[in-house]
Amino acid sequence: MMNNTLKNHLCKLPSGYVIVGKWHKHSYKIIKPLGKGANGVVYLAESPKGLVAVKLSDNSTAITSEVNVLKHFSKVQGVALGPSLLDVDDWFDPYGKKIVCFYVMEYIKGEDFLAFIQKRGKEWIVVLILQLLSDLEKLHQEGWVFGDLKPENLLVVGQAPKIRLLDVGGTTLKGRAIKEFTEFYDRGYWGMGSRKAEPSYDLFSVAMIMMNACYLKRFEKKGNGREQLMKMIDADETLRKYRKVLMRAIAGKYDHAREMHHELMAVVMDESSRTKTNSRANQSRKGAVQQRYQKRKKHSGILETALIVMFLLFMYVMYLYGELL
């Protein structure tokens, strides 16, 4: 029962329009729209306390759920897992003649994740993803799973670029069913697992965000999801470097964000050490597996050469023996 007319005018509040809360009587002057989600519209607004972001929705259920999540996050000291919550209230909408719920949060000024990568280069992908994994680890430790993880819900903030999580609409308590998702980033859609809220659900989405960042587009599932994703990883130069980590994330092999962080970091370190000195002096612990594999390959090469040399020597000896007789 999507009421389109109501939705439409909620999305088109003119700048300068003032919204006054029914309960707390705070007023907010609309400046411009910032974005539109599945459950409402977000405006940049001016309040006595400075610039804020106001989310309006005719779906009070969804707003209340989001507020609950944001409240839990504000209890986490010291780490910014989402925007901080400033106010929750109702507003009587004179156009729709209906109560509209809204909440007010800190305004985070930043750049779109994909736009940032396009502008600053692909080397930023792994940097931002590592930051994201650190944040997810904290979130998971608090007992939550982000759920609807996608580039639109990420923002790159500040002079020293740092990733921030934005829309908490999909954030779900661990062990429950994922509330909100977007097909491309959803492991259920790709046939790679359930929609239970667990850390590995988010980590699958992280892998898909990396794919999205390299290809700059989303693609549809065709046939076997796993094989398709594998091919897409192999076909891209950047993704190929992180193949092992990506495949493990896609297969749901990581139980914690920190494990994925660790292994991704190991690949990065290994890569940079190889390009720098081409020596294997500084082996990281996790890179060891890969290197051992390469060593074994090298060993078999030496063995092969030795066998050929021995064979030739043997033939030569036989020849000499024949000549002598």
Binding site: W23, S60, T64
Partner: peptide
């Protein structure tokens, strides 16, 4: 639910 103040509404939700 809409008649409850937002704080209480959260608990009901």
């Amino acid at each position: 639910m809409e008649d409850l103040p937002p704080e209480k509404r959260g608990e009901v939700m």
